[in-house]
Design a protein around this nucleic acid. Structure first.
Lengths: 216, 216
DNA sequence: TCAACAATTGACCAATGGGACAATAAATCG
DNA sequence: CGATTTATTGTCCCATTGGTCAATTGTTGA
């Protein structure tokens, strides 16, 4: 976290203003600390140390601790988002778009326990932080939209809605599993699970909508 | 949290020793505080206040803060567990057992945002608390075992394994959704999702195992 | 009744954390 | 170059927190 980043391309946009660069460094440092320490142990001092700076500088760029972690969440989300969008752009058919979303959500260099740990800590604060809640809402809306872009060609609107809920929940659940028991689920397993889920739901499309499910 | 609880039946076991009762009160108070404040805001003083006692008493019954919240997690888990087991005992067929687990995991008076919030905060600490991790592990093992008791009669062992992973992830994901966006998922929707998931997977049992899923 | 024990409290303490601020160093720009 | 703005640091402050401890108040059982 020294200065190598100063004149580098970070993400899709070149950061010119020094302040922007510093802010990004600090957001990332905050996230890294979150990975290690969780929300309870993530202090301004640790973030500063992680960024190789003083505590004062953190509060120079962010009004307070809350704001810092809100930006950390936005940052992390942007990365995730980018992984999906990149794949989505190469997709041609509806099914390809669907798979793009699924695979993008389990990208190899992102589907990692520490990332999940930090994410989990942020999610746990959502109920008490209006801003975090709004970010979460946006994330879900984008996810839904991405999935819909593929599902519209494959299922009825009502069915698509149902499938979207299932897919998003399943993805989140698999991430959670990675965080709670690293090693109990691989990227390939996760992708397979979600794809099979969709396949199963689409297969049941014309079948009796109750089927086995209502046997109990 | 006064004294009405003193001579009451709490759960399946009557608590005789006063110390046991006090400990239970405090565990529950800790969980309640967790619901409101999250792990970062849950202090011993607040727990004490919630229980109508002094901070000293909390540390009289629990070695330290960590231990208190570990017990809070066990407590919450026991409640969840009880809901499932009760239904499981009334189930006769494999499918009934499966449905018992699914419905038990979304019991009406448990599938609530505050409960989820507290739970989420505890999960977020799992990576940094060996004891919490062990509790988590036990929970998952029991869940798997419960599901297996139904699935063994319905699918091959390998398939059952896969389905279990999917079902547990889906359940967790739906809970997470409840916590992050209360109101975006009802108990009925959740139950339906999981049941349909299982139905879809069982329907694909004999079909080509790849199917639509490998189109991308 | 009295001694041993458990429960409970409140005071106390050292450590830490978030945040304010003044002082200093750098950079930018006319 | 000189002045104004920006970056950065370290110090200071106050509130909070986890945890210890001695003292007090029941409870219980011989």
């Amino acid at each position: 976290m020294s200065t190598w980043i100063r004149h580098a391309w970070i993400g899709p946009v070149k950061l010119t203003r020094l302040s922007d660069i510093r802010r990004k460094e600090l957001r990332q440092a905050a996230f890294t600390v979150l990975e290690r320490e969780g929300i309870a142990g993530a202090t301004l001092e640790k973030v500063a140390a992680q960024a190789g700076a003083s505590k004062g500088i953190v509060l120079h760029y962010f009004r307070n601790k809350q704001e810092l972690f809100e930006h950390a969440m936005r940052e992390a989300n942007a990365v995730l988002c980018h992984a999906v969008v990149a794949r989505l752009q190469r997709a041609r058919t509806p099914m390809e778009r669907l798979n793009a979303v699924i695979e993008g959500n389990f990208e190899e260099h992102l589907f990692l326990p520490p990332l999940c740990h930090a994410w989990l800590s942020l999610c746990a604060e959502v109920p008490r932080d209006e801003k975090l809640a709004r970010i979460q809402k946006v994330i879900h809306a984008r996810m839904r939209s991405n999935l819909m872009s593929g599902l519209r060609g494959l299922a009825s609107p009502e069915q698509a809605d149902e499938i979207v809920l299932g897919v998003t929940a399943l993805i989140d659940g698999l991430w959670l599993r990675l965080g709670l028991q690293p090693g109990s689920v691989t990227r390939e397993q996760a992708v397979r699970q979600v794809k099979d889920f969709v396949a199963g739901r689409l297969a049941l499309r014309q079948a009796a909508p109750v089927g086995l499910a209502s046997a109990g």
